[in-house]
Simulated scan of single mutants.
Amino acid sequence: MDRMTRVLAPLAVAVVTGAALVACSSEDGPAAGDPAAPAVPTLTTTRTATTTSSTPVLGPAETPVDIPVAVADRWSELGGEQGTLGRVTGPATDVEGGAVVDFEGGAVVLTPTGRAFVVQGEILAAYREAGGPAGDLGFPTADEATTDGGWISTFDGGVITYLDGVAEVRTD
C-alpha cells in the first residue's frame, strides 16, 4: 500500500460513514446545529431538479407513473386528476437539467432550480415547436396567464402569446 492510499483510505471511510449517518438519521432526532446533534461531516453536491425524489401518481390504464415531487405537488394544487391537467400520460422526460411531464391537458415543466410551471394548449404546441426547454426560449418563468384577448407565457429567453387564435413566439 503506497503512502497516498494509506492517507486517503481513512478519509474515504469517514466520508462514507458520515453520509450513512446522515441518511439514517430520523426527522425526530436533533436538527443540524442543535447542541445535541452529533458532529457529522456532510457532503455538498449540486443537483438538478430531476435528481430530486419522485412520487407515483396514476397514469394510463390505472398504472402508477413516477414523476418529480415538485411536479406532483403543482398538479395536486391544480386539482389533480379532476383539474384542468387531468391524468399524467407518462413519466418525466429529462431535459437541460430539468424535466417535462405530460398530462392529458398540458404539461408541467420543472426548471433546474426545482420550480414547476404549467404550459398548455396552443402555447404548449408553439413552445414544443420552438424546441421546448432545449430551444431558445429555455424554461418557463411563470405559469400561463390571461391577457387581453388570450394568453401569455413567459420564458427565460422570450414570450409566447396566444391572442385572437394565433400563437406568436418572441425570443429575446
Rank of each mutant, 00 (worst) to 15 (best):
P41F: 10
P41A: 05
L43C: 08
L43Y: 02
L43F: 09
L43Q: 05
T44C: 03
R47D: 00
T48L: 08
A49I: 03
T50P: 00
T51A: 07
V57E: 02
L58C: 02
E62G: 01
P64C: 00
V65M: 06
V65C: 02
D66G: 04
I67Q: 02
P68I: 15
P68Y: 14
A70V: 13
V71S: 01
V71K: 04
R74M: 06
R74S: 01
W75M: 02
W75A: 00
E77D: 14
L78T: 05
G79L: 14
G79R: 09
G79I: 13
G80F: 09
G80S: 11
Q82A: 15
Q82G: 11
G83Y: 08
T84V: 15
G86S: 12
R87Q: 14
V88Q: 02
D94H: 05
D94S: 07
V95Y: 01
V95M: 02
E96K: 14
E96W: 00
G97Y: 09
G97N: 09
G98N: 10
G98V: 03
V100A: 03
D102W: 13
D102P: 00
F103W: 13
A107G: 11
V108G: 00
V109T: 13
T111R: 08
P112N: 15
P112C: 13
P112V: 05
G114I: 12
G114W: 11
R115I: 04
R115T: 13
A116Q: 12
A116D: 12
A116C: 10
F117I: 09
F117E: 09
V118S: 06
Q120V: 13
G121T: 14
L124H: 11
A125D: 15
A126H: 11
A130H: 08
G132R: 04
G135H: 03
